[in-house]
Design a protein around this nucleic acid. Sequence first.
DNA 1: ATCACTTGTGGGAGCGCTCCCACAGTACCT
DNA 2: AGGTACTGTGGGAGCGCTCCCACAAGTGAT
Lengths: 351, 351
Amino acid sequence: MASHGVRGRSGGRPTLEEVAARAGVGRGTVSRVINGSPRVSEATRAAVEAAVAELGYVPNTAARALAANRTDAIALVVPEPETRFFTEPYFSDMLRGVGAALSDTEMQLLLIFAGSDRERQRLAQYLAAHRVDGVLLVSVHADDPLPDMLSQLEIPAVISGPRSADETLTSVDSDNYGGARQAVEHLVSRGRRTVAHITGRLDVYGAQRRVDGYRDALREAGHQVDELLIEPGDFSEGGGRRAMEALLERRPDLDAVFAASDVTAAGARQALREAGRRIPDDVALVGYDDSAIARHMEPPLTSVRQPIEEMGRAMTDLLLREVADRRPSATRELERRQMVLATELVERASS
Amino acid sequence: MASHGVRGRSGGRPTLEEVAARAGVGRGTVSRVINGSPRVSEATRAAVEAAVAELGYVPNTAARALAANRTDAIALVVPEPETRFFTEPYFSDMLRGVGAALSDTEMQLLLIFAGSDRERQRLAQYLAAHRVDGVLLVSVHADDPLPDMLSQLEIPAVISGPRSADETLTSVDSDNYGGARQAVEHLVSRGRRTVAHITGRLDVYGAQRRVDGYRDALREAGHQVDELLIEPGDFSEGGGRRAMEALLERRPDLDAVFAASDVTAAGARQALREAGRRIPDDVALVGYDDSAIARHMEPPLTSVRQPIEEMGRAMTDLLLREVADRRPSATRELERRQMVLATELVERASS
DNA sequence: ATCACTTGTGGGAGCGCTCCCACAGTACCT
DNA sequence: AGGTACTGTGGGAGCGCTCCCACAAGTGAT
């Protein structure tokens, strides 16, 4: 009959019930001790903890998940092919931050790639099955259906880089506006008079904010904004190069360029070289991201650093709070949460 | 009372019971359909599938895990700090293979780093809680307690690179012996007469096998093995350099070197350069791993390629089979499984 | 007709927890 | 003295499945 409950069977793990018997208390009390409830007397707690140690008790996650309707796991969803994940330091920095925030938690992190259609299909199933308590969403494109799916399923989610000024999801972002201002103010303070801007893809909210920052910084410095000095790019190297060529043609007198990404700056650099302009003597150049490219460029590129690791940490903290709020312990705080982290200008030889 | 069971409640997911009611069958029958049991009539199956589709039923993983004592998840455990994981293409190749093998499965992959002591602690807890059905173990050091822990917990595991000739765990490895033979045979066929070998760390089983391959290949080519031509290295660049210096001193007449890794070869190359030997004119050089280093070396390095992605796939297939064997469906096959995959010599200018 | 299988099906029991109600005990007011 | 509150505790109910036994119905041999 009870061949399953026999103690000492290899692989037979002790249950709450057994711990309770051993400690001479009830099942509920053991559960309270395990979950750190304060409503347990010191003596009882000690007895239970001893029993737990003696038996080598480890809670059964599945049972807990079933009874409490939670999984104690969150997912980091990367809507990109794996390749990009490994090549771009952005993700590993992010992951480090997430890991740090999770390290003194019971929460488990799942890494989910959703680059291909097939993977997205799987992800949808996965989320529908509520196999995670919450989702961290990085690098989401404007038209991605994922965020809405998450809202629909009522799964707590935090997004890095809001999709618009009125993002409904809790979001964490670096201060694109402020970062752009830092870059431009730096150029102006170095005596540059004619500062151009190569933008990112303007359907990305962060790119728009950088344009805003560029405009305001110039205005406040007493310069007037010349629309001929703003040229759209697309975050790519080719885009940066073409934009630079266009700018040089329209305003050959420019003496500084703020590019919306380091890759864009690399493209701009090529165009400048070909036009015979020296960096920084003739034209100062500032990028964004402070990536490896910036450090290895010739000359090394001044760039705006985003605190990616901290962003990962902040996203995780917010998500954990949101997950906790859904637990049957009430006290919802549910304010709309948008966090913005400061950037830092890393000055190098290009400006 | 039953405020929980009410249909249409936001977030209220349909249960097996509800699907059964809808399809006009019993709970057991729905379960059979969901799990693809063959003992269901075609008509019933269709009815159940329709009900599943209408209700948007998704099985509750936690309930299934509790009842069936399985998790439908496996872990890829990387006993290294995250940094190495991202910088070395070995891991991303491996991950690709694992992902491919898993892609038409219900199994979920968990990526677990166990570089720091803290992370290892967490991992131990994790495994003790049986939160995965099986474990993929890559790049394990000889004295790692992890494999034994897994055996103790009776968790199916597959290891990449057996720890010895009589590895108890199921293992997948590339053919270190054969790869070494390929390298040496290649050098001999190119007319080299005095082929040296810089070994890897000899406490690594694979490194020993490479030495064996080196010896046998020379013997079979009619050369006799001169122990003075074998110098221990440690897979590192510095080790390769020192070994090369030692070899040059002992046998200045050598005209070829087979290094146990590309990194080792890079070290050897430095020593050769400094001794004024030209590659490949004076000394031919062959490495192992076919890493990025090999491609970018000056001159490009001939190297032995291991089918890492395939190894990942094979490991996963074996693990899945092993996991399936433990399910209450009997027919254990439990033979000892050691799989060895062929290597390939990639010829470049260094030989 | 009887027996012996096989096939398909229903539903009870049980997996190991959490939640929550009930209640004993103690403390502090009126 | 009686009330009211809070603290600590035990244990029933139930989470949504899987497993398996029981059994009805069909099939074919005896």
